[in-house]
Design a protein around this nucleic acid. Structure first.
Lengths: 84, 84, 84, 84
DNA sequence: TCAGATAAAATCGCGC
DNA sequence: GCGCGATTTTATCTGA
């Protein structure tokens, strides 16, 4: 690789640092989300309810996506003359 | 515990064996499911499609359950005179 | 298949329901296992340790199975009168 | 709150949308991290090793932070003129 | 401290 | 046979 022990240390280090950068970013945004929940709670909202609403909306999206995929599968199955 | 080294070996063994029993049972049923998929495939069905259908129906159920929970939360929130 | 163009809803439905049945069964037993772990914890056992024990015994069993398989291989080789 | 009986749909909606925004952002960055791992693998690095490195560095950082905290504690104890 | 949710890791079956 | 994707299991984290 780089000449010495078969491992390109510089490259590895670059990769690790990129990962650490995005992870720091992720941690920041997770903190942000936590703060939104706390602020909402302080305003009198029940966090449980908010979580459920967020979760349900996420499920809606996932379901729509999967239904679209299923349709695609149907289409290809029909082309292959397979039973559904 | 039992007199010797502070660990109740008999009890631990009993627990481990109960766990292994249910895991064996789980493995059996996973094998069963695999066979159903294989049989379906042999009949000409696309396993992918079956998986999607199963998955969608599971999502439906989960969604209904969560909606019921959300309703419960709403009801208690109203009783507590909290904003939704 | 069913007469027309490869769509056999009844059959598909039957398959899906069989799968859902075994998956319900699996879920039940997973719940059972969870309860065993909780009960063990309540009795003072560390669940993590128990997991380790179960895992190690599983490895042991896998190894014994492998050895048994190897033995079978040897046995059939002998029957075929081939040198090992 | 909103005037009548504790229902403030607009506010709730605003909160939910803010949460969804940060979650979308988080998902994006998780996708980014995944791509970095894939790219590293394509270059010949073992993702498992990289994870290990990242994890170890995280532990190191945690330990350093802890030591820094301890040092702060010592410092304030000195200021209070208490024996350690 | 503990249960529930979230994320990470390992495992397994399928495809090429 | 091997990488890839999906499923399952393990560990971590957070909120009650």
């Amino acid at each position: 690789m780089d000449g010495c022990n078969g491992i390109n240390g510089a490259h590895l280090r670059a990769i690790v640092e990129r990962i650490e950068a995005v992870e720091a970013s992720i941690a920041n945004e997770q903190e942000l989300r936590r703060e939104i929940y706390q602020e909402a709670k302080a305003t009198g909202f029940d966090p449980k309810i908010i979580r459920k609403v967020v979760s349900l909306r996420k499920q809606d999206k996932a379901k729509r996506d999967e239904e679209a995929e299923l349709l695609d599968l149907y289409m290809s199955a029909v082309q292959l003359e397979m039973p559904l």
